[in-house]
Design a protein around this nucleic acid. Structure first.
Lengths: 141, 141
DNA sequence: GTATTTAGTTCGTCCGAACGAAATATACGC
DNA sequence: GCGTATATTTCGTTCGGACGAACTAAATAC
């Protein structure tokens, strides 16, 4: 089944990218979180990852040590720690994604507007289903 | 970008499934390999995973202990070890996938034949691109 | 039939990454 | 201001999973 191969390809790609960046999967996932949601507090990372607070402290330590993020006190509530992505550090890895991006751009260019609409609709809905399924699995005891 | 979210959802789903089956990501990936390619020798698993032989020995140990595979001597070359999936063990986890499968079936049912053809074509080609990109990254120094 | 190569395992070890419990620092309620 | 609640870190520990080197067993070469 092609859906499965696609899913597998995604996992492999992520693993290889993470390795290339010198990150573990959890670390890469966190970087991705920060890219999508912007700066987060440690507590918010706890929410999003499901990790224990202690684990997130260590996780942030490692990302700081590797230069991917900075740790700042929240001026509004100085108990909080804001984790901010160092975008400059990331640009160095752009070439890693270029191959994929260029390939996908070329692929999209071969479809009509109507076809692209179908594909986007599919991707959106399939993603929602996958997210729901993930939640369902981890939920039930 | 939706492609990225989709990719991320796939990774999350895999992680959760692996956890649910009591497997690590490497172990789940190996089970998947065996499902797609049939029984493999230890050496072939080394090839496909890129792990060291010693690591694969341990990996097989763990999968055998967990009841997911059997280890047999190859009668044709008794140095070789054939790793075979225990399909019976896997059927117990079918419900884990049902949520996803049912959701996707329902999704597919909402498209016309023509639309499905576009979607399948896209998935096939996008997968190929992703695989190629993965190879390109891990390849170059 | 002995030497060499090949397949896999065992052993000792190491490291990343997770956790709970206790500590620290800050904010908030009254 | 004082006590309690909240955010994060530190500490000590544990565990899975990876590795290289040395070993065993079996096939192949000569």
């Amino acid at each position: 089944m092609i859906g499965r191969q696609n899913s597998n390809a995604a996992v492999m790609f992520h693993s290889v990218v993470a390795e290339r960046m010198g990150l573990g999967l959890t670390e890469e996932k966190t970087v991705d979180l920060l890219q999508r949601l912007g700066p987060l507090t440690a507590g918010e990372i706890v929410q999003h990852t499901g990790l224990a607070p202690a684990s997130v402290s260590g996780l942030i330590d490692r990302l700081v040590a590797k230069g991917f993020v900075t740790r700042e006190k929240d001026p509004a509530d100085r108990r909080r720690v804001i984790v901010r992505l160092d975008h400059h550090r990331l640009t160095g890895f752009a070439p890693v994604f270029d191959e994929l991006m260029n390939g996908l751009d070329a692929l999209y260019a071969t479809y009509t507007e109507e076809e692209l609409a179908v594909i986007l609709d599919y991707l959106r809905r399939a993603t929602a289903i996958q997210v729901a399924a993930t939640g369902a699995i981890s939920g039930k005891g």
